[in-house]
Amino acid sequence: MKFVIAPDSFKGGLTASQVADAIETGLKRVYSTANYTLVPMADGGEGTVDALVHATHGRQLTTTVTGPLGTPVSAHFGLLGNGRTAVIEMAEASGFQHVPESKRNPLITTTYGTGELVSKALDHHVDQIIIGIGGSATNDGGAGMAQALGVELLDQTGNQLPFGGGHLNDLAAVNLANRDRRLDHTHLLIACDVTNPLVGPTGASVVFGPQKGASPSMVATLDHNLRHYAAVIHQTIGRDVATVPGAGAAGGLGAGLLAFTNASLKRGVDLVIQYSGLKDKAAGADFVFTGEGKIDRQTQFGKTPYGVALAAKEVAPNAPVIAIAGNVGSGINSLYQSHAINAIFTSVAGVKTLDDALLEASHDIAQVAENVGRLIQVTMNK
């Protein structure tokens, strides 16, 4: 019997690899000699580097880059097993974890460190970079990223703009003369699960600015500044990024990547499925296990369990897909009606505090996997 185990992380608790290990542990208590294929997954956000490095037998590298507040931070990125593809999570360099809540201010935070990560990946002679752009603490339209890669964003006096979305209204000219030429021969795949444009009522500043510390007046300023930034980009280099779906992701980093690199936007989970080789690994499966921290009606909109289920059904249409989650929310009937996920189980055993649930997550996941395994055994023995 072949079990394919392809979960996402339980954010704040276990990595995808740890979740997969726990599910395998539980199932082996029932099926000790079965074939187990573990494919830790992600949706382009946290855990994407770990998932793809694990799946391709690649390696991780750690470096120091400029954090969102302009101070040095430690960040890691991955090189996939093919030696030609790098994978980056922008949050490693420019994410919330580097900014204390009391210092969140998207007028000044920068994506410069994300650009430095891209540059360091290019040092390894890759021809493709996958970049997950969730979890940003920034709203600078990718301006800092561009500057780190040699793009000059100049004010009327010919000086480089300072860091942060608060200065984008001073942009007068864009100079690409010193842009890193390695970008001409490198394709950037942007793992993006939102469709927000750069500006307007559903744009980066209005929708995501408040969670990054923006007051209503700051939101208005940031949106105005991004609109000006996009207009200057359009006028000077001919790329219109203001209304492209997904350009508003990560405080407009999507727009910056589309403007200044050879980039395209893709759904994060689809990229991970492709580069992890999930479909090939799921072929011939008897059962597929997936999961993440929370499963609810939103799961079918680009989340890992749904993507895994659809991919698995393509190559193993008769294999039931079983999902395990720490929290099962409302609206899961839509997942059943889609015929993608066949059964959903919560892993939390009994009433407990959040701290205890996180502490005991591995044990609880193994236990529910064992319980499901015993149900499968009873059903198959009838």
Rank of each mutant, 00 (worst) to 15 (best):
Val65Thr: 01
Val269Asp: 01
Gly70Arg: 01
Ala242Thr: 05
Val269Gln: 10
Pro68Met: 04
Val321Ile: 14
Asn225Thr: 00
Phe163Cys: 04
Thr110Glu: 00
Leu38Gln: 07
Pro320Asp: 13
Ser217Pro: 11
Val99Asn: 02
Phe287Ala: 02
Pro197His: 08
Gly44Gln: 09
Ala283Lys: 09
Gly164Gln: 00
Asp270Tyr: 09
Lys266Ser: 12
Asn196Lys: 09
Ser17Val: 12
Leu161Val: 12
Asn105Pro: 14
Ala204Asn: 06
Leu258Phe: 02
Ala121Ile: 08
Ala214Glu: 09
Met218Asn: 11
Val174Ile: 15
Ser136Tyr: 04
Ala323Gly: 04
Asn196Trp: 09
Leu79Thr: 01
Glu116Gly: 01
His54Cys: 10
Ile324Gly: 05
Arg227Ala: 15
Val315Ile: 02
Pro216Arg: 07
Asp140Cys: 03
Gly302Arg: 04
Ala22Asp: 02
Val151Phe: 12
Tyr306Ile: 02
Gly246Trp: 09
Gly115Leu: 05
Gly83Tyr: 05
Leu122Ala: 07
Leu80Trp: 05
Ile341Glu: 02
Asn371Glu: 13
Gln367Leu: 15
His57Ser: 12
His339Lys: 12
Ala177Gln: 15
Thr261Ser: 12
Phe289Ile: 04
Asn342Gly: 08
Gly373Asp: 06
Ala319Pro: 00
Thr114Glu: 08
Ile376Ala: 04
Cys192Ala: 10
Leu171Asp: 02
Ser9Asn: 13
Gly284Pro: 10
Gly135Trp: 03
Ile130His: 08
Pro305Asp: 10
Thr221Ile: 15
Thr114Phe: 00
Val378Gly: 13
Gly132Leu: 06
Pro40Glu: 00
Ser205Val: 07
Ile129Gly: 06
Ala121Phe: 00
Thr111Val: 07
Asn318Ile: 05
Ala343Met: 08
Ala55Trp: 03
Gly291Arg: 01
Leu80Ser: 08
Ile190Cys: 11
